[in-house]
Amino acid sequence: MHTMWKGTISFGLVNIPVKMHAATENKDVKLRQLHKECQSPVKYEKVCPVCDRKVENEEIVKAYEYAKNKFVILDDEELEALQKEQADKAVEIVDFVKLEEIDPIYFEKSYYLSPNEGGGKAYGLLRSALKDTGKIGVAKMIIRSKEQLAVIRVYENTLIVETIHYPDEVRSVQDVPNVPEEVAVAKKELDTAKMLIDQLTAEFDPEKYKDEYRTALLDLIEDKKNNEQTTTVKDVSTRPATATGADNLMDALQASLERAKKEKPKPKQPKRKTKTTTQKKKTAT
């Protein structure tokens, strides 16, 4: 299992060297976008709308937009200094609380913790203490350049870290539109609803829940493969590099304009009217 982070978890004077591993994985079926005409993968490029050209990674800086079109630029050295200052700190458990006191809306992502070299005994100590007290630890830690609020708890026989949202990251329920206030419900309807809930009540077994859409999509893909309903993308990796996207936008527009001028038919000159015999006679008289 890939190690995402190494550090120290501490509570009181106890320090536990640990490694962190992702506890979950996204199994969504990723679909690419192809150009319908030639069935080649579509590229997404970073383009500056003012300079009207593609921008390379080394030309990009980070900034915070504090007002419309007004930015504070932050260079990489400043950001790295802040991150290092926080990352060097041990992850300290600041409180112990009961799991049921935290509403599920706060939970974000789960990570397994394994003991690093020499941390097995302290790891086992924290695990046993959490099990016996029925508590979880609340801590702060830096993950991927962001300070995270997290809880540390026991899952089966393993310590697990679950990142949780800060209170100001959870939107207020007062902002949810069209939520009715207390609604008068007939007793018969309420009793029937409760009976239905009782009939559908079961012990939670995660194994019985399947992603039916993903299964059906994979079956469809496999069926198309077996019936040779596939396409092969042309290998363009050996082609010489050429300007693309906004790099040659003005050239393309100019060339199109020149071509349009050449192809545009010349306007027909209006035919000069010839005098009829009657008009000639009138003029003569």
Rank of each mutant, 00 (worst) to 15 (best):
Y112A: 05
E147H: 04
D191R: 10
H2G: 06
F107S: 08
E56N: 13
A90G: 01
T244F: 01
K224E: 12
D211E: 12
K54C: 09
E181Y: 01
A202R: 14
S172C: 07
K30V: 08
K54H: 11
K194W: 15
N157A: 07
K89W: 02
K210W: 02
R171W: 07
D251K: 06
Y209R: 10
I102N: 05
S237M: 03
K30M: 09
T8S: 13
F11S: 14
N226W: 04
K135A: 12
P267A: 15
M1P: 08
L218P: 03
T163K: 00
A63C: 03
Q86L: 13
E77W: 00
D76E: 13
P270D: 06
Q33H: 14
L159C: 11
N15A: 13
G118E: 09
S145P: 11
K84Y: 08
L126T: 05
I164P: 01
K225T: 07
K30E: 07
D219G: 09
I142E: 08
T158K: 06
E228A: 12
K54F: 06
E189L: 03
A81P: 03
T238S: 14
E77N: 05
K27N: 12
D205V: 13
P270H: 13
L159N: 11
L113K: 02
R144D: 04
E58H: 09
Y123A: 07
D132P: 12
V14I: 00
K6C: 07
P265C: 03
L113E: 07
E101V: 04
V233I: 02
Q279C: 02
E65A: 11
I221E: 06
E212N: 07
K188P: 00
D168L: 07
L31R: 10
K264H: 09
R259G: 13
N26F: 06
V151K: 08
V183Q: 07
Q254W: 09
K36N: 14
R53Y: 00
G118W: 03
I73P: 03
